[in-house]
Design a protein around this nucleic acid. Sequence first.
DNA 1: CGACGGGACGC
DNA 2: CGACGGGACGC
Length: 493
Amino acid sequence: MSSDRRYSGGSLPPSDNPPNSRLFIIAPKALKEEDFRKAFSEFGHLEEVRAVTDRATGENKGVYYIKFSKTSEAARAMESMGGKVLLGTGRAMKIMVASSRDQGSKREENEEEKLQRLFVVVSKNMSDSELYDSFKDFGGIDYAHIIRDRVTKESKGFAYVKFLKFSDAANAFENCDKKFRPVFAEPRKSTKETTSSKPPLMSSPPSYRGEGSYGRASEGGRGRAGDRYERRRSLSPPDRCRDEGYTTLSVIANASVNQDQMWKLFDVVPTMEYCTMRYEGERGSPRPTRAIGEVVYSDPRWAAHAKQKLHGFEYPPGNRLIVRAEQREGGAYGKRPALSVEGGGADLRQIADTIAHASSLIQAAGLSPDLLQKKLGFTTDTKHDEPYCSVELPPSQPMASADADTEARCFIVCQESALSNRVLKDVFCRFGNLIDVYLLSNRNCGYACYASKFSADDAIQTLNGADVMGIRLKVIEAEERPGKRARLDDRSN
DNA sequence: CGACGGGACGC
DNA sequence: CGACGGGACGC
């Protein structure tokens, strides 16, 4: 292929597509390209075999590249041929995955890990063990873990799966369910930081750095970082609220939330006694970055209920509240009566519906604080005006396992404005076997994935045309995903 | 009306 | 024993 050296025109330079499919080999100079073809073609299809020669003398430099069609082929070739002696030349080959052409001979420190670890996208409700089960058949797994928010424990929607062998990782890379969108993970950045400036990460929200201090602020209770912006708008809670029998929740919210809004939101749950708020910001920054609330309930069961319902609630939309039981010595929270708040009594259901209703109004109101306040005020006074849903919904049902196969999908349209994920999940889970439900970003339409066609049909039957919190739903059978590949054995589609 | 998300680890 | 090959066209 020496005439092909220039790779000009339409053909891409021969490189690492698929990733890690090209090998870099150090071997005796006596070996010819043909020797490598013979020795390596048993592992797969060779797209390129090349000996590097000295440009001036034409002499073989003992450096070879071979490119396989598939990563797994390269992996198996490397694992079985590395260290072997070819043709009695007397010296073992050294085989590595070739770096991309621009990297040259630079080597990274965690080179091994780069070949064993996959970075995958997971649906938000998948657990570590479901993830593990989805990958265990491809080979020995070192670990499989989903990355979660340190504070809320919510899945961030991606995960790392590390195998013990490159060839197993390659096997998973090629054969795992496409929904995981696997890529070979970049090795973790080492602790020593390069002095060069790092490029801004588009994907990181500016608030990301703040997360660390969230945890510290609420755990340590020192409140130091926020001194400058601490403007309490009310007196301290009455002493009786500190007594046993009262339960305090800690709330972390977006800085745009004011105390009245938070009060009204938490007051939707009965027995709220008190709500106080302050603001915290970074030193030297002109504006607060978050609001810190303390909400006190006289009945610990309702406090638990408020925590359960409002933790993770998007308020304002796109900003999840973090609600935790305040850690306090001998706190009343831990001593609450054993009565479950999950019992689903009529009053509890009513509250859940009211909160959901508030959610829609908050969403409809956008980010304007005044409007929010008005709408929320309206909400708390008119609980009975509007039902959660215009049609009768079956009771909640557990989600299907997140790694279940999708049997049927519904296409969802929210006619006026988007419903929150929380509400969608609550509504669409009621037909059973729900795997995942989501709206496309910045759109009012999306998909519900079910593990059973029957459930999906049921959802369509019940929900199409229904009103949920004042938003009209269109729910129809989803069209087949364009790029999706059917299983080998059914080609009917 | 509407049609295919999300992406980097804090020991 | 150890990295290919050649040259960047934007506001």
